[in-house]
Simulated scan of single mutants.
Amino acid sequence: MIYPIVAFGNPILKKEAEEIHEGENINELIQDMFNTMDNASGVGLAAPQINKGIRLFVIDSTLMLDEKDEEKGIRRVFINPIILDEYGDNYSFEEGCLSIPDIRAEIIRPEKLTLEYFDENWNLKEEEFSGMTARVIQHEYDHLEGILFIDYLKGLKKRMVQSKLVDISKGKVPTDYRMVYPLK
């Protein structure tokens, strides 16, 4: 199943997601999330973006890398993740979001993180991620905390996107994937 993506303005995007009880069967949902992300040509998708307030996201950072990159991307699911530490140099990169189409902005994030999470088989993992994979994880993790990448914008940059955000919430933005708009 391919879910519609929830657009900016839906309250679920600003709420902290709830932990999933260990052992819950979410295999079908995980597959649906990968299908939804792939259909929208995304590199990550958090459950709140499909109107599910649970601590789950999927990523495919292989799409952000090419052959000359030393880093290898991953395609993976993260259940009940907890960022244990973020470190390394801060660097800026232009981010976008399936829930906020047509807006991109330079966001500064640390280059590395250590994450604790469950995989799809409920195996507890602790792992270090860096580069683009770390960035995608940080972006999707923010969704679970009710934080959007535009929340990092300040001053003039934030004011410059306000009218676009209103248009997005009203459905006045073209996308190649299905969306649900809170003000339409």
Rank of each mutant, 00 (worst) to 15 (best):
F57P: 01
E16K: 15
Y91D: 14
C97E: 05
A134W: 00
I54G: 02
R55T: 01
L153D: 13
K15S: 14
I2W: 07
G146W: 02
N39V: 05
T114N: 14
E111C: 03
N39T: 10
L165T: 04
G9C: 07
L124Q: 12
I54T: 07
I74F: 08
V161G: 06
R75K: 15
L148F: 07
S163D: 13
Q162N: 12
C97M: 06
N90F: 11
S163K: 15
R178F: 11
I79D: 02
N123F: 04
Y91S: 12
L124V: 06
L148W: 04
G23F: 01
I107W: 02
F57W: 03
K15F: 06
N90G: 06
F57Y: 05
G131M: 04
E127W: 02
R109E: 07
E86S: 14
F57S: 05
D151I: 06
K184A: 12
V180G: 10
Q138P: 00
V161D: 13
L29K: 10
G171Q: 06
R104H: 15
V173M: 03
G88C: 05
Y91F: 13
E127D: 14
D89V: 05
K72L: 13
E116W: 00
N51W: 01
E95K: 11
D66T: 07
K154F: 08
G155M: 06
P174T: 12
R178G: 09
E16Q: 12
R55E: 02
Y91L: 08
G23M: 06
E24I: 00
L45R: 04
L156W: 12
P48W: 00
E128T: 10
E70F: 07
V136C: 14
E71A: 01
Q49G: 09
H21F: 04
T175W: 08
V166L: 12
T114P: 00
E19W: 00
K15N: 15
T114W: 02
K170W: 06
E128M: 06
I83W: 00
M33W: 08
E18W: 00
K72E: 14
Q31Y: 03
F149E: 12
L65C: 04
K157M: 14
N39D: 15
S41H: 15
Y141I: 08
S41C: 09
N25P: 00
G155P: 11
I26A: 02
E128R: 02
E28I: 09
E95Q: 13
P81K: 05
I50K: 01
K14V: 13
L45F: 04
L115N: 04
V180C: 02
I82Y: 02
K164A: 15
D151T: 04
I79Q: 03
P174L: 10
F118Y: 15
K158E: 14
I168E: 07
D32P: 01
I147Q: 08
K157E: 15
K15W: 09
M160L: 15
E18V: 08
G42A: 09
D89I: 06
S163V: 10
M37I: 07
T133Y: 00
E70H: 09
L153R: 10
I168A: 11
I103D: 12
E140Y: 11
N51L: 07
E116G: 06
K158W: 06
E86W: 00
D38F: 15
L115F: 01
D32S: 14
N25G: 07
M160R: 13
E95A: 09
G171W: 06
E16M: 10
M179L: 04
N35S: 12
E140W: 10
A17R: 03
D89T: 05
I100K: 02
A17P: 05
E24F: 01
D32W: 02
R178Y: 13
D176F: 10
